[in-house]
Design a protein around this nucleic acid. Structure first.
Lengths: 343, 343
DNA sequence: CATGCTTCTGTGAGCGTTCACAGTAGAGAA
DNA sequence: TTCTCTACTGTGAACGCTCACAGAAGCATG
């Protein structure tokens, strides 16, 4: 019972051991392992039995050395990390990607590039071929890392539309503009006419698109645009709070507000409450994301659901396809209006 | 300008190329790389220059194949994932571990074991030697994975004290009991005498310890324990809400409540507000964690800060030491009372 | 002049795979 | 019988690195 002391890992069985055990050669075992054809049912069976008996697991390093693939994927975050780690959506995305990859038996390497130094180190690591591809989260504008990786020939998929247009980079995103349109149409259909907006950062495509959707619907509804009703935040709770205060000051008659993220909407709710406005009585509030922040808020937020579970699985699908040689692709997924108590 | 087409990564330089470039042998390059001694300053310099010129990066697979080390660490979560990913502390922990490892140039593999199937697959992967060690988050009782890994000789550090006592497993934890004592002492010092508690799950050490601290301080303060003032939750927001409702029903004269997590405390605040109790006027509320939920709550929560940044760096330190051959170790870190507006 | 010691350097072997190629056996056709 | 074709199997080489070992200097000591 003391056969394996602490730190005393026994040398694991190799493909050689399996071959001997099954009475075949290394080549045959390798063929069975890699689903190759041209292997007899008898050998197939013998090898599988031997694998089970010996508890063999392939040595990925040896395999990678010869195939040149690492059979692993990097998940790279180049945003200021506080903001993203605060965002419940990020978690959903990370979890979804991990699970989608696990279904292919591919490990996910988590990489956080906060500083320039870290970014350089990680870029170097990636371009050295230590991962087969990268899932990139970086909505922040002017981030050169995406193009750098693409130019190095690294398969790459971004979450959200990249800023640098025209560049052949795969991405998966929710339909921001359409989502915004749905929400604003909903607010207008409730009879609200003085509809404000707290946008996201306007140097990101998401921020711009949601604002565009807002403007389109108001115009289509024959409601005059009023710039005093628009201010922008940075997706953080605090910036929502500040935004709402500003809007109330500039347009006290505001009767609805579309907020570009649930987290900011939480801040908006606080500010409205402090100003003595009831929600949704005086002011209807619509969020965006349908993150856990939406149900944590009180009243619970009407919001636009971004299908993060599908986004993550699509990112993985597109990335694996690209690694398999296919061309970069863009995927835009539909959003959904989720009605709750804040409107 | 079309030298690197999409997918066309050039073969990276090998140690051989560097050796030729520097006019030395592979052995010497390897010695420089691995900080070995017995290499002349001249050779040292020549090799470094050659590395810079060629842009050489070591092929980790080839290295791992011979050293037997993978130079990577697994971060394994065997909890129901929803709960943990909802918890802001988990993010801080994950981020901290990633960064602490990055400082050693070690990649972190994220592994999520929700189902039994996934657990088996991952255990197999780990014991096959694909990672050098594991950072394990699994406060949930009766989880066999820790002992399984230990028995397989895999270096292992847990976050939080493991349930199976006596087992030689490293862990890093905050001082739950002491933190609870601080909080309850604080509440008592405010003159509160009917102090309730919503505990965490009592099949976890953290849950038990915080309850123990609560009882100790009340007893020491000469306040009679009243079981109607204690109920337990599962750290989720919803369970805090339910817990507070129960306590109010059983003990309407409650004038303070110690809640074993900030997330649950958010729920408690909602329930109190709905019941028309003012915080901290009628009821003082103390949380635990000092997560981002504490400042998002209104009023902002007085809470016990768990030093998650230090926990993560200690976990990495202990794990690397253990990989280096040292014995398993237990580290208990002090907590800190953070006073805000809820008390 | 041989001997030993220290400091440095080159070389061959081997880590566990996969891949290309050569080979074998058996079936069917000439 | 001999030949060809198909279905399968074994073998050597290679992937890029580290490690152990064998040397080669340079210098002091016997």
């Amino acid at each position: 019972m003391t056969m394996s002391q602490s730190g005393g890992r026994r040398r694991p069985p190799t493909i050689h051991d399996v071959a001997r055990e099954a009475g075949v050669s290394r080549g045959t075992v390798s063929r069975v392992l890699n689903g190759g054809h041209y292997v007899s049912p008898a050998a197939q069976e013998a090898v599988n039995a031997a694998i089970r008996r010996t508890g063999y697991v392939v040595n990925r390093h040896a395999r990678s050395l010869i195939t040149g693939r690492s059979d692993s994927i990097g998940f790279l975050l180049t945003e200021p990390q506080e903001r993203f780690f605060e965002d419940p959506n990020f978690n959903v995305l990370l979890r979804g990607c991990t699970q989608a990859l696990a279904a292919h038996d591919i490990p996910l390497l988590l990489m956080l590039a906060g500083t320039d130094d870290e970014r350089r180190r990680i870029t170097r690591y990636i371009t050295a071929g230590h991962v087969d591809g990268v899932l990139l989260v970086s909505s922040h504008s002017g981030d050169p890392v995406a193009e750098q990786l693409r130019d190095a020939g690294v398969p790459l998929v971004m979450c959200g539309k990249p800023i640098g247009v025209g560049s052949k980079i795969s991405y998966v995103a929710a339909d921001d503009r359409d989502g915004a349109r749905d929400m604003v149409r909903h607010l207008v259909s409730l009879g609200r006419r003085r509809v404000g907006m707290v946008t996201g950062p306007l140097d990101t495509p998401g921020g711009v698109e949601r604002l565009a959707g807002y403007r389109e619907v108001l115009t289509e509804s024959g409601i005059e645009l009023d710039e005093r009703l628009v201010t922008s935040g940075d997706y953080s709770r605090a910036s929502g709070e500040a935004g709402a205060e500003l809007l109330l000051e500039r347009a006290p008659d505001m009767d609805a507000v579309f907020v570009a993220s649930d987290l900011m909407a939480q801040g908006v709710l606080s500010a409205l409450q402090r100003a003595g406005r009831s929600v949704p009585g005086d002011v209807a509030v619509g969020g965006f994301d349908d993150s856990s922040a939406a149900v944590a808020a009180s009243p619970e937020l009407t919001t636009i659901r971004q299908p993060y579970d599908r986004i993550s699985s699509e990112m993985v699908r597109v990335l694996l396809a690209q690694i398999g040689g296919e061309d970069p692709a863009a995927v835009i997924l539909p959003t959904e209006l989720v009605k709750r108590r804040s409107t």
